[in-house]
């Protein structure tokens, strides 16, 4: 092999790997991105059942129903609209009524939400940033900027280590 051929071989190899990487990233971008919505967004944008999404808001006080097993039903609200959420499993440690929560899953045809994971925050002062923003957009934000202790934060299930 001449010097030129060798160089060409390496360039082809490099471009091939780059091409494969780009194709993989684009493909994954199309299939595996999850959007975040508040209950009002879902009502406005008429999002259909079956699409995977994250739903965020506050757990409506008095809405949590636990039947005998590990099934839980609760309502996520942003004070504009609210959505019933069905979840089966152990709730995160700091799942509380009136607190911010993010559920991941999909809408069901009857308009309720089937969550397969629920993230809640480990600090009573905390609200997930997406939730805070969604509430701010609706003008229902009561907290002040940067309120609460400058403390480490943690999601429960699906925690961010």
């Amino acid at each position: 092999m001449t010097r030129k051929q060798r160089r060409a071989a390496f360039i082809v190899l490099g471009l091939a790997i780059l091409g494969i990487a780009v194709a993989l990233v684009l493909n994954a971008m199309r299939d595996s991105i999850v959007f975040f919505y508040s209950p009002s967004d879902i009502a406005e944008k008429a999002i259909g059942p079956g699409e995977r999404l994250r739903l965020g808001g506050l757990v409506q006080p008095g809405s949590v129903v636990k039947d005998g097993s590990t099934d839980v039903i609760f309502t996520i609200t942003d004070f504009g609209d609210s959505i019933r959420v069905h979840y089966s499993g152990i709730l995160p440690d700091l799942f509380r009524e009136g607190q911010g929560v993010v559920a991941e899953g999909e809408l069901r045809p009857d308009g309720s939400f089937r969550a397969d994971s629920v993230l809640a925050k480990h600090d009573e002062n905390y609200m997930p940033p997406e939730v805070a923003e969604a509430l701010k957009k609706r003008g229902d934000w009561q907290g002040e900027e940067g309120s609460g202790r400058p403390h480490a934060e943690k999601y429960g299930e699906g925690a961010y280590p």
Binding site: I17, I20, A21, L24, V25, N27, A28, M29, D31, S32, I33, V34, F35, F36, R54, E104, E130, E133
Partner: peptide
Amino acid sequence: LYPLLLDAVGGPKITVGPPFFNTTFVPL
């Protein structure tokens, strides 16, 4: 960084979770 960039320019809020990384990282 894509979700952060998208958020910074005022785009929709998205999550790039394990499925993205599994379908790109593992084949490489």
